[in-house]
């Protein structure tokens, strides 16, 4: 508590944390570095971070019968063009955006009115419904993936966007979080809105939604991060149809398609998929950490 700094202690703490940071950052460093270097440099672990960027020849390009001068390129160009040409990366990314956004929008459409009813309306059976929500919190969707898969298969929905989205449309966690948040909104605000002549629907979307923006933002971060990164569920319901694959699943396919020494394009694809969230995270770091903590702590 004494304001005098213990410089030795401070130095030791930084040393420990720095060592940890190096281990944590190692794969990110390798990912970026490999995505820039030529296969030879990767295999021999030479060339530092960016490699020498000597002109190399694209063998697939030669095989495709194109003139040799068109097939000579820098490793960085080769890696990234290969990533985009060998796999429908753009398609994967668009799928990812479509699926994550759809999930989040539907989750809010379902959860917000329910949370409002559970926190601010008095009706018969309210406690039972809330009990159901609490009970459902115990069921991780990943755990019941198999019966969900069977049900979707029975109605013929596997290998569709619907299969990717439907199981996540209900977020009991979202309902719980919103309800807890709405409990802190004063009843007077709602009564005032009723006095102003608003319908219950208008109250939900024009009064409660704006007050819930911070909680929604936190929940949005949680939801988007979880579903952009989710690999398990897409792996279960999408079998073979590349047009429907989300980024992690597409990356997995890319990996099993490639032969041994195509590390460069592989890492380029990985970089492209990992980078969007990482960049957004670094830009809005504080919000992300607060959001994840807020949703994490319930």
């Amino acid at each position: 508590m004494m304001a005098r700094t213990n410089w030795l202690g401070e130095f030791l703490k930084h040393s420990v944390l720095l060592a940890g940071a190096i281990v944590v950052l190692l794969p990110f460093y390798l990912m970026l570095s490999y995505s820039l270097k030529s296969p030879a440099e990767i295999e021999s672990n030479t060339g530092g971070f960016v490699g020498s960027q000597e002109i190399m020849t694209d063998r697939r390009c030669i095989k495709a019968g194109k003139p040799a001068e068109e097939c000579d390129m820098r490793p960085i160009v080769y890696n990234y063009t290969a990533a985009f040409s060998e796999a429908p990366l753009v398609r994967y990314m668009l799928n990812g955006v479509f699926v994550t956004v759809s999930i989040f929008v539907i989750q809010v459409l379902v959860a917000l009115p329910c949370a409002y009813a559970l926190s601010k309306l008095k009706f018969w059976g309210r406690d039972v419904v809330f009990g159901l929500v609490i009970f459902c919190l115990l069921i991780p969707v990943h755990a019941i993936a198999l019966p969900l898969y069977i049900m979707l298969a029975k109605v013929g929905l596997t290998n569709t966007y619907a299969a990717l989205i439907i199981p996540w449309t209900i977020s009991v966690f979202g309902i719980f979080l919103m309800r807890q948040f709405f409990m802190t909104v004063p009843d007077d605000l709602i009564d005032a809105a009723r006095m102003d002549g608003m319908s219950e629907f208008a109250i939900v979307w024009r009064v409660m939604l704006p007050t819930a923006i911070p909680a929604l933002l936190a929940f949005g971060i949680f939801s988007v991060v979880a579903h952009w990164n989710d690999y398990y569920w897409p792996r279960v319901v999408i079998t073979g149809n590349r047009d429907l694959m989300t980024p992690p699943l597409g990356l997995r396919m890319f990996k099993s398609d490639l032969d041994g020494n195509e590390y460069g394009p592989m890492m380029a694809a990985t970089t492209v998929i990992v980078l969007p969230l990482v960049i957004i995270f670094l830009l809005a770091q504080r919000r992300f950490i607060e959001g994840i903590t807020m949703t994490g702590m319930k």
């Binding site: 944390l17 944590v24 890492m267």
Partner: peptide, 26 residues
């Protein structure tokens, strides 16, 4: 820490945000 805490926090949180499957491949 007196300084640099935010930086370490961001670094250690990075793997939480990154796509696990992709990082597993790395």
């Amino acid at each position: 820490l007196r300084i640099g805490g935010e930086l370490y926090k961001a670094v250690f949180f990075l793997p939480v945000m990154a796509t696990l499957l992709a990082m597993a491949i790395v």
